[in-house]
């Protein structure tokens, strides 16, 4: 395997990781502040992708499509927070899991009802299609590079939001002591709705960005949701830093595992067996990584007990 191909795969892994971060950041924020496990986060990812695909089909503008994804996901997020999620904060995790699982059923089937079962397609903008020459003579997809940059910018923005602004201060305060910030005159229910909508918007953005690479279809959010859970378990619940580290780790492990394992196995077994065993093992690699983290640090890399 050539170095160029390897670097390309590393970039792909990075792009995957950055997308996972957008999902995991929202999940971990919502868990950190409200103590809620939200399975419907994948549904919001799907809402973002469908909103973007519809807007792009209607106006032809990719920028408008991204805005539509952000707005639609945030709106649906706020809507389910106000109607359903709000009643779950004081419930146990089992109730949260079941209620948000019910939301997935409703969202998925409703989307199938409105848009049909066939996948939609979201084209990447002309300005970003094609490749760009990176230093070292590596050709890489412009669009994927843009995703990496957008993802890292969002990560930076999120750090600044939480570390430097008044809203961020309240979010951190909410993680530490809900009752106290309520007593200090902060309207917690508005804060909760805002955090939920923020997480939803991130999921929607991620869905729209990925939608241009893959197809936009019902159920697209579910594999990503579960990977985001793996990310959170590895990174530590409630930690944005952990989510970023975990996401990049999972993205790289998965992408590199899929390319390298079959090659590695072919050094000591015949080609077809190597492909079979290599790819079967590669599909399990991130879970093995998760198991490893659980053995050595059950609260995740950046988690506190």
């Amino acid at each position: 395997m050539s170095t160029i191909l390897l670097i390309e795969q590393i970039l792909n892994g990075l792009q995957f990781g950055v997308m996972l971060f957008l999902m995991a950041a929202g999940l971990t924020l919502i868990f950190g502040v409200m103590g809620l496990i939200n399975l419907a986060h994948g549904a919001l990812y799907m809402v973002g992708a469908f909103a973007a695909a519809s807007m792009a089909a209607w106006t032809g503008s990719f920028t408008l499509a991204l805005i539509a994804a952000l707005v639609a996901a945030a709106m649906f997020g706020a809507l389910i927070e106000l109607t359903v999620i709000r009643r779950l904060y004081k419930r146990d995790h089992l109730d949260q899991v079941l209620a948000t699982f019910a939301l997935i059923l409703v969202f998925s089937e409703a989307t199938r009802w409105v848009f049909g079962s066939f996948p939609l397609f979201l084209d990447m903008p002309d300005a970003l299609s094609g490749t760009v020459m990176l230093p070292g003579g590596i050709e890489y997809s412009k669009y994927r590079l843009t995703i990496i940059i957008i993802g890292l910018l969002v990560a930076l923005g999120l750090f600044l939001l939480i570390a430097r602004t008044r809203v961020g201060m309240r979010i951190r305060a909410g993680e530490n002591d809900r009752e106290m910030i309520g007593a200090l005159g902060v309207d917690i229910s508005i804060l909760y709705t805002m955090v939920f909508a923020l997480g939803a918007a991130l999921a929607g953005l991620s869905g729209a960005l990925v939608g241009a690479i893959q197809s936009v279809e019902v159920g697209m959010g579910e594999p990503v949701l579960i990977l985001a859970f793996v990310v959170i378990v590895i990174g530590g619940i409630g930690s944005i830093k952990g989510a970023l580290a975990g996401a990049i780790l999972v993205g790289l492990t998965d992408t590199l595992g899929r390319t390298l394992l079959p090659v590695l196995f072919s050094t000591f077994m015949d080609a077809s067996a190597a492909t079979t065993i290599g790819s079967a093992l590669a599909s399990m690699l991130i879970y093995i990584l998760m198991a490893g983290v659980l053995i050595f640090k059950p609260t995740g890399l950046f988690g506190s007990a």
Binding site: L98, A99, A102, I104, L105, V106, E109, A110, R112
Partner: peptide
């Protein structure tokens, strides 16, 4: 064909 919408709503009701 979209019966899972109703299933989801029933489940929500039972949980809540």
């Amino acid at each position: 064909e979209y019966w899972q919408i109703y299933l989801g709503l029933i489940l929500l009701f039972v949980v809540l």
